[in-house]
């Protein structure tokens, strides 16, 4: 078990990061090529000011009609995305790993806070799941791949909290957590979660379309 953990937290972590970085570059480059081939003129109309205007406006909760129309989702998705980034990058335990492995000290969340944010993120995932089960207009468009990416995202949080609170065998839980985190990292470029790479670009496209092309008073 110790040897397995050493493998999972060592070589396998490098492999997962490799998939994530090379996969992301590949997806961005091939998407650019596709856009150029299918809709070349739109690239010429991309406008930086209108892109930024759209992105900024959508970054403010309840600022856009989209956010106003679904308050539960708006609250859940803001808490989820902010919490996810905070925990993934600045969790105390993750900072300790960077410190031990590479001697890099990154700022980190105080212990109790990181724990609390993790619970908030799990609650937000529960809201996402509830919508997909209970609301007809969401249920109707839900495909297995939506469930797959939701589970992929929730797993590191659930196993991480269990490992931190030492529920169940500690070494096993920590190993499962690291595996779950690496699976997520490696699959981000190749699942619905690739919107993490594309969301800002799709938003820019919409913003440019409405601002620079249609001159609509909308973002």
């Amino acid at each position: 078990m110790t040897e397995f953990y050493v493998f999972v937290s060592g070589p396998l972590a490098w492999i997962a990061w490799g998939f994530f970085i090379i996969g992301s570059i590949y997806r961005l480059v091939s998407m650019y090529a596709l856009a150029k081939a299918k809709d070349g003129s739109s690239l010429a109309y991309m406008s930086l000011p209108y892109s930024l205007r759209s992105i900024l406006n959508w970054l403010i909760p309840f600022n856009t009609m989209g956010w106003k129309s679904d308050p539960l989702m708006t609250v859940a998705t803001f808490l989820f995305h902010i919490g996810f980034l905070l925990v993934a990058v600045f969790l105390g335990a993750h900072a300790v790993l960077w410190d031990t492995a590479f001697g890099i000290s990154i700022p980190s969340l105080p212990g109790g806070f990181g724990d609390a944010v993790s619970f908030v993120v799990i609650a937000a995932c529960a809201v996402f799941a509830y919508r997909r089960l209970a609301l007809p207009h969401v249920k109707g468009v839900t495909r297995p791949k939506d469930w797959f990416s939701l589970i992929l995202v929730a797993l590191p949080f659930v196993t991480g909290v269990l490992a931190y609170h030492q529920v169940g065998p500690v070494l096993l839980m920590t190993t499962l957590h690291v595996l779950a985190g690496e699976l997520l990292l490696a699959l981000i470029p190749f699942t619905r979660l690739s919107h993490a790479l594309f969301a800002l670009l799709t938003r820019s496209y919409m913003g440019s379309e409405f601002g620079a092309v249609r001159h609509a008073k909308d973002w």
Binding site: E3, A163, V170
Partner: peptide, 29 residues
């Protein structure tokens, strides 16, 4: 720094020997 000194000394040997605690919760039980 002190924390890194402990972690590197303790964990490096346990990992190399494949014996002894290596996960956070095993040492900080």
């Amino acid at each position: 720094p002190l924390m890194r000194a402990y972690h590197r000394q303790c964990i490096t040997c346990h990992e190399a020997k494949g014996a002894g605690p290596v996960a956070c919760g095993q040492c900080h039980a």
